[in-house]
Design a protein around this nucleic acid. Structure first.
Length: 669
DNA sequence: GAGCACTGC
């Protein structure tokens, strides 16, 4: 679990002696020779390592230093970019080498490697992309899949492909075996996982050997509720004040499912904290969730003022992505929100975002957050029986995601998802729904064969629906605008930030961007205004402008990186990204409709919207500029079910648009 | 009338 190290500091060569001493003290160091031998002797090794064991930083170095990795590169895959880059920084320092020389990384938008690079940290998405150009991943002699227990969609596809690649590279049966091995450059696979689930990986790889590595985590004493709690927010509040009045100083981290609960708990803790007697410490409340304005959550990392106990209210963001220093107490409500895709054979399916019980491994991970710096306490707001009935670990992503993008990528590798040897096979409805979407996008034909258009779509680092819109924009003469919009849509965070205290002011500030046709052109207005600011003002002016308009600057800068990546991709496909339609919004919406034809709905006489290619009645999400508006036809980016089915990212289009692009001809098939 | 977390040639 070294992947969550955000606080790793790259150290210069002068401190290398110290680093070498630290390396030797890691729990894993004692087993060094045995570990290298096991990996050398087996095709596949499953490594179970607890938090703080040092496995992710040390194993690659052991393999390199012992010569076990031969002449190839050691790849270490990570689900997250920050992890890949910060691990590379750390290991380069330990190797007393400049980053990008023998130790490098490769993530989207950023690569630090050279022909000398022998250890490369990369995101799992990146190596799956590498498969497209090098199906045998031939430059790597060892591939270490870290955080495999997270079972991201890309990790699962990688694990499946590695099994196949190893079969091809290690076991050529013709001719002298030794010679063939030389020639085909055998591959070692190491699967790293936190506890639990190891047997499943082992079984997948013909009972590969499982090796356990001890971690270095301070003990955390866990308490369960004696009876089940009906209201976890209220129960969290009572538990917090119990800790606050009874326990020694130390910050408290409370895990909650979402923003709504965080805001309500914050209110009630604030109310009670004001009534505390004067001899009790002060309470400083910090909240943390992804949609929050950046900067808002940075106070979490500052040390607590004197006589003050910090109380951090967080979503799952504090479970894996961010490590908060100073936490001694964890309160775990046992709940989280889970996004799950419901495949439908009509209308393209939709996402649900519902609150549910967490899993055992998540509960352990949350408790572990109390033991980062010393002994800690974890208070679970659920009974021990409830813990026992929890699932072992979250369901793998491949079973709860849309498969459209993956199936298209696999088609480019001449692979069909249903023929792969996968740890978990998605159900047929999920596969057929993705195939139908690809067919509606013209990415595959009626025989499920990849079309030239589909091959082109796969070259974009985009969802197929967005790639389709970009390609359509060529004929419509509005590629510049479509790229502006799509780059924001595919950025990882929301454009409009949320500041609980200034909700009114925020919607007021955004009013100036509103476009009558809907959210897509509203985004374009923001981008145009932002680029005006960028040309006239500097960095500080941009930041201030974003703050004033409640816009997420991170989203805007990520979008501009994505946009330049997309422009490059367009260039390679001879699509002129500079072609603009000016204010011709008709062409723009038509391009988007090519991609979003399946995501469309018509107004019903009763004022509701009904899918054109499905049977669901949907509502426009309250966050949309078209909410409460009645227009004859809409297209939308996604459907999300919370308590109703909401369409998010909505634009109004002419009904005739669908006939013009021939989208409705196929809906009955 | 409402927004778990990640990620990409």
């Amino acid at each position: 679990m070294e992947g969550d190290n955000q606080n790793i500091n790259g150290a210069g060569p002068s401190t290398n002696g110290l680093l070498q001493d630290q390396r030797k003290l890691l729990p894993i160091a004692r087993g060094r020779d045995a570990l290298v031998r096991e990996i050398q002797e087996n095709d596949v090794t499953i490594l179970l390592g607890e938090t703080g064991s040092g496995k992710t930083t040390q194993i690659p170095q052991y393999l390199l230093e012992s010569g076990a990795s031969g002449s190839g590169i050691i790849a270490v895959t990570q689900p997250r970019r920050v992890a890949a880059t910060s691990l590379a920084v750390r290991v380069a320092a330990e190797q007393n080498d400049k980053l990008g020389k023998r130790v490098g990384y490769s993530v989207r938008f950023d690569e630090r490697s050279s022909p000398e690079t022998r250890i490369k940290y990369l995101t799992d998405g990146m190596i799956v992309r590498e498969l497209l150009s090098d199906p045998l991943l031939s430059q790597y002699s060892v591939i270490i899949v870290d955080e495999a227990h997270e079972r991201t969609l890309r990790t699962d596809l990688l694990i499946s492909n590695l099994k196949m690649i190893q079969g091809k590279r290690n076991h050529r049966s013709t001719g002298s075996k030794e010679k063939e091995k030389e020639k085909f450059n055998p591959l070692k696979i190491v699967i790293m996982s936190a506890t639990l689930d190891a047997e499943k990986f082992s079984m997948f790889y013909q009972n590969a050997k499982i090796i356990y590595v001890k971690g270095r985590q301070h003990p955390v004493k866990v308490y369960h509720s004696l009876e089940s709690q009906t209201d976890y927010v209220e129960s969290a509040m009572r538990t917090f004040f119990q800790i606050h009045t009874d326990q020694t100083p130390g910050d408290v981290l409370i895990f909650l499912p979402g923003q709504e609960d965080i805001e309500s708990l914050e209110k009630s803790i604030r109310l009670f904290a004001n009534q505390l007697p004067h001899d009790v410490m002060d309470v400083l409340i910090c909240s943390m969730y992804a949609a929050q304005a950046p900067g808002q959550n940075s106070k979490v990392f500052l040390p607590s003022p004197a006589r003050t106990r910090k109380c951090i209210l967080a979503t799952n963001i504090a479970e894996t992505s961010i490590t908060i220093p100073g936490v001694k107490y964890v309160i775990d409500t046992g709940m989280c929100k889970e996004k799950r895709y419901l495949a439908r054979n009509t209308g393209g399916g939709f996402d649900t975002l519902l609150t549910r019980a967490i899993t055992k491994s998540s509960a352990m991970q949350r408790a572990g957050r109390a033991g980062r710096e010393g002994m800690g306490l974890c208070f679970r707001l659920y009974t021990e029986d409830a813990f026992d009935t929890m699932d072992l670990s979250p369901e793998p992503e491949i079973l709860r995601c849309s498969l459209t993008s993956s199936i298209l990528q696999l088609k480019c590798l001449n692979q069909d998802l249903e023929d792969l040897d996968l740890m978990d096979m998605p159900d047929t409805e999920s596969i057929s729904s993705a195939l139908k979407t690809l067919w509606l996008l013209d990415a595959i034909d009626q025989n499920k064969e990849l079309t030239p258009l589909g091959r082109q779509m796969a070259l974009f680092p985009l969802e197929p629906v967005h790639a389709r819109a970009v390609i359509a924009s060529r004929e419509q003469g509005c590629t510049s605008e479509v790229l502006d919009i799509i780059s924001v849509l595919s950025a990882s965070s929301k454009l409009f930030v949320d500041v609980a205290e200034h909700r009114e002011a925020a919607s007021e500030a955004r009013r100036m961007f509103r476009h009558a046709s809907g959210d897509h052109l509203t985004i374009l207005n923001v981008i145009r205004a932002y680029s005006d600011i960028s040309t006239t003002g500097g960095k500080a002016a941009r930041r201030e402008w974003c703050r004033k308009h409640f816009l997420n600057e991170k989203t805007l800068s990520e979008a501009s990186e994505i946009r330049s990546q997309l422009r490059q991709a367009c260039g390679r496909m001879r699509i002129d990204w500079n072609v603009s339609c000016g204010d011709g919004e008709g062409q723009l919406l038509k391009s988007l409709a090519y991609g979003l034809a399946q995501n469309s709905a018509f107004l019903q006489p009763d004022g509701s919207y009904k899918q054109t290619m499905g049977h669901s009645v949907i509502k426009i999400h309250p966050g949309s500029v078209l909410c409460d508006k009645k227009v004859p036809a809409i297209i939308y980016d996604e459907l999300i079910y919370t308590n109703q089915i909401y369409a998010r990212g909505v634009s109004s289009v002419q009904k005739s648009t669908f006939t013009a692009i021939g989208a409705l001809n196929r809906r009955s098939s």
